Amino acid sequence: MISFSPYKFIFMLSLLSGTFLAISSASWFSAWIGLELNLMSFIPLISSKENQLPSEASLKYFLIQALGSAIIILSSTLTFFIPSISLCFISLALLLKLGAAPFHFWFPQVMEGLNWTQIIILMTIQKLAPMFLISYLSSEYFTHIILFLGGLASAIVGALGGINQTSLRKILAYSSINHMSWMLFAMLMNESSWLIYFFMYALISTSVALFFSSTQTYFFSHLINSNSSPVSKIISMMNLYSLGGLPPFSGFIPKWIIIQEMILSTFYIPLLILLMSSLVTLYFYIRLTLSTLSISCTQMKWNISLTRIKIFYSPLCSFVNLFGLFIPSMLLVI
């Protein structure tokens, strides 16, 4: 995990500052400055001298993000001459920065080289600025088409890419690509839908990553061969089902909202593709959890002791992924 050293705390503050600068910018030049500040603050947080994998991941991330930033700053110069082509290139560059399909090739590889704390930052905070910027362009005609095609490609790639994976980090990467398709379609309909979806996705994916971090679980074999208690295995199962959007867990609530919006907007065929892709993601989640629960714990039940981290994370993960069960009853009361 990221140690709370002073210089990393400073880099974290500058990372957040770059994100807010890009979101609130009034021109593409200031948005580019915010993206660059965000990039140069994230690289020191993931690089490491002791381990080669984070260094390789940081180099890949730097090259891809630098390419996206270069496309943005070059395309912004064409705004006065060919505005439509300029906005198309800017949209493609932002999709590249997000890791959405068909520009997803770097995202699972970078995720594989990070620890769980760095993965939380990459899946949540690092997506904020590009998503806000691309939502500002969603009303343009050509950008609308790019977001539509990118959403369909992300749904298919995110579903099929995670089937044969044994690494939990790559599974979360392809799951993030699949969730990106829902958010891209939400941008095409209204502003508030994708914000609700992103907030719920960030909350649930953070709870999943924190739980895996507390148990130091990175692969299928770690889950199956772990000496964790049956309660911990059940909590990990609920985390994954909620992330996959299985009703009645919390992850189904934002998908329910998007489904209603897409029906009202007559996006029937894209909705069918999104639902089928969600079923595929639920398939490899269920396959993982069933194999984990079917193998009994090898440790003596009376020797199992929960650490402070697990005692803190277990109720947190349970609340995050189960509070969706209480929302229908609350609506009936209201």
Rank of each mutant, 00 (worst) to 15 (best):
Y136S: 15
A209R: 10
S318Y: 01
I304E: 01
S314A: 11
S205C: 00
S91G: 11
M131L: 04
S278Q: 11
G151P: 01
F20I: 06
F284K: 03
I43L: 14
I327R: 02
S181T: 08
I73A: 06
A155C: 06
L114M: 12
G324F: 12
I295C: 12
S138E: 09
L282N: 09
S138G: 04
Y218G: 02
I273K: 07
I73T: 10
G324Q: 10
F62Y: 09
L37H: 07
M12F: 15
L114H: 14
M300G: 03
G150A: 15
F142D: 05
I259L: 06
A159D: 11
I125R: 01
M300H: 12
E261K: 08
P315H: 04
S139K: 07
F198G: 01
G113N: 15
L152C: 00
L63I: 15
F198Q: 11
K301M: 12
F11Y: 11
V231R: 11
I10T: 03
I263N: 05
L92V: 11
L92C: 12
F80R: 07
F132G: 02
G99V: 06
I304G: 01
V280F: 14
G245S: 02
S229R: 05
K170P: 05
I71Q: 02
K8S: 03
F62S: 03
L332V: 07
F319K: 01
H144M: 04
S205G: 02
M12D: 11
K8D: 00
K49H: 09
L39T: 13
L203H: 06
S41K: 10
S27L: 14
P254M: 14
S214A: 13
H179T: 05
I234M: 05
F199T: 04
V333K: 12
C317F: 12
W256N: 03
I125H: 12
F220N: 04
N239W: 08
I196N: 12
W106S: 00
S305M: 09
I334V: 13
E261P: 01
L16W: 13
S207P: 06
N239V: 08
F148G: 02
M123G: 00
T298Y: 12
N321V: 14
